[in-house]
Design a binder for these strands. Structure first.
Length: 92
DNA sequence: TATATGACGTTGC
DNA sequence: AGCAACGCCATAT
């Protein structure tokens, strides 16, 4: 585990129920402003044991892989999702 | 070192 | 609003 991965992990692990953030936001919270793509790369392997469904794109759209799955989980936490986008919680 | 790749972001059309 | 071009960061070859 590189310090960066540890950082990303911590940020993601701190996300609470119904708390939605963007990839860029995660990068910033981890002290790596602009490293949004890296967050995605990280989630690609260690995402299985983290609340990956609480991470969406900057415009609120869901990650283009398991859209249905992610939408299901978000709604289960009370997050409003319409047309593949989060509409109530405004990330950043 | 150099190049290619991708769960992204911003801007311009 | 939707899409294409770039730009960006970290990794894998």
């Amino acid at each position: 585990m590189t310090p960066l991965q540890r950082a990303f992990h911590d940020v993601l692990a701190d996300l609470g129920e119904g708390e939605v953030v963007s990839y860029g936001e995660v990068a910033r919270r981890a002290g790596r402003h602009g490293a949004a793509r890296s967050v995605g790369a990280f989630l690609a392997e260690h995402g299985s044991d983290l609340p990956w469904w609480r991470v969406v794109r900057a415009d609120g759209s869901l990650a283009a892989h398991k859209v249905a799955e992610q939408q299901r989980r978000l709604r289960a936490e009370g997050v409003e999702v319409t047309g593949g986008r989060v509409t109530d919680a405004m990330p950043r």
